[in-house]
Amino acid sequence: MEPVGHPPPYAERVLDLVERIPRGRVMSYGDIAEYLGEGGPRQVGRVMSTWGGGVPWWRVVHADGTPPPGHEQRCLTRWREERTPLRGARADMRAARWDGAPESTA
């Protein structure tokens, strides 16, 4: 259940970035914090667990490419639909990690 009201400014920045992660790509919690230049992986995780239901949450993973605990099967389903590069049951961070730069459409 989503909390009542609007997310605080930091949460809005996290959610905005998550919405921009392209299909088939992922960012780790730490990648997001580093990109934003504030917070850390735990703060990003807190935002995602509290407010992340309305964004492509399956594109946010642990640094080793594993999905959020309890969401493994749903992540795998979404990753397969989006053709996210995988290594077994985790995202292939070398191939799937997004650095925040605009994707080439060529």
Rank of each mutant, 00 (worst) to 15 (best):
C75G: 08
G5T: 11
R23V: 15
V60W: 05
W57L: 02
H62C: 12
P41L: 12
R90F: 02
W51M: 05
V60H: 03
R97M: 07
R97Y: 11
R42T: 10
E38A: 15
W79T: 00
P22I: 04
P8R: 12
E34C: 02
S49I: 12
P67K: 01
G5Y: 10
G30N: 14
P56W: 00
P102A: 13
P8F: 09
P7N: 09
V61G: 06
R90A: 15
G40D: 15
G37I: 11
M48R: 06
W58C: 05
W51N: 08
V4Q: 15
H71C: 07
L76W: 06
M27K: 01
R59K: 10
A95L: 15
G45K: 02
G53N: 01
V4I: 15
G70S: 00
L15F: 11
L76E: 02
E34V: 14
G37N: 11
R42S: 02
P3R: 01
G45C: 02
W98L: 10
V60C: 04
A89L: 13
A11H: 05
V47E: 05
P68Q: 13
Y29A: 08
A63F: 08
E12Y: 08
R59D: 04
M27H: 00
H71P: 04
G40P: 07
W58E: 00
H71M: 07
P69C: 03
Y35M: 12
D64Q: 08
S104L: 13
G40L: 07
T105K: 12
V60S: 08
G65W: 07
W58T: 03
R80T: 04
G52Y: 02
I21Q: 05
R94N: 14
Y35N: 03
E82K: 01
R94T: 14
Y35T: 11
A95T: 09
G88D: 06
G88Q: 03
D31N: 14
R20E: 14
Y35I: 12
R13K: 15
M93C: 08
W58H: 05
E82L: 00
E2W: 14
G45D: 03
G70P: 00
Y10I: 01
R78A: 11
A89W: 14
P7Q: 04
G24Y: 09
R74M: 06
G30K: 15
G65V: 07
L36R: 01
V18K: 03
G30F: 10
D92I: 09
R80Y: 00
R20D: 13
A89M: 15
H6P: 10
P9K: 07
W57H: 08
D31T: 05
V60K: 01
W58Y: 03
E81G: 03
V4S: 15
G70L: 02
L15R: 08
A106V: 13
L15A: 11
T105D: 09
P22K: 01
